[in-house]
Amino acid sequence: MDFLVSLKSPVSGLGRQVISFIGDLGRIFLFFFEGFVHIFKLPLQISKFKQQIYFIGMKSVFVICLTGAFTGMVLGLQGYYALLRVGSTGALGGAVALPLIREMGPVLTAIMVIARGGSAMAAEIGIMRISEQIDALETMDINPIRFLISPRIAAALVCFPLLTALFDVVGIFGGYLTGSVMLGVNPSLYFSRVESSIHMSDVTEGFIKSIVFAAVVVTICCFQGYYTHMRAEFGAKGVSLSTTRAVVISCVVILIVDYVLTSILL
């Protein structure tokens, strides 16, 4: 009998895990769905939307420029020496721009925004939860998801593609700095190669990715903060756990979703 029980427990444990995982997935999806629908419900929450645009978008500009520049510079360096071996350093423009626009732009932008804005969102909403501010909204008959989450989703959907575009442009100039200014690739050749190697479909792919990432990042980060009170840990510990989980889970999910999207869109 004991033997049977011990045999059963890992199996049932695994089953429980799977069921709770699927349950969470469903809850996250509904969470996003409710937040998304409320973006369009009247009256529109314009001022909150603007605040979030400022917070998610405007305040990330510097960090995005910095990471974009260095990513482009590294791509320029690496690309140059790789192309040197096959004797076609003239193709550097394409070698920098293509991976930037299709992969690195959306992914690195998402990861930088997670680090800057996502962790803050999880902490902010988590603190609101433990200090009963979300309960206070409910007692006032104000839908907390509409009030707190919808403006963030809307702002992220607008900001992510714009930040990605900024990242791409700065990155291409970064590649120009190392490739042409430092290593002597003909500048006009560099930029004409950038232009000729990029098709509209590449840009579209990058934008689709960034929009999907926006939804994923905001939903996961807000969700972690919003359900801080459901954790075994309470108070400040709960909030710190929410923040950590928000960052780790959204980074991992971004990379997984990136692979899935690439294989579909390619």
Binding site: I127, D135, A136, T139
Partner: peptide, 19 residues
């Protein structure tokens, strides 16, 4: 919802919106 609108609640820890 109509019922909820008749209520008001004052929290022990105030629960003011800090932002």
């Amino acid at each position: 919802r109509a019922l909820k609108r008749k209520f008001s609640y004052m929290f022990q820890e105030s629960a003011l919106f800090d932002f």
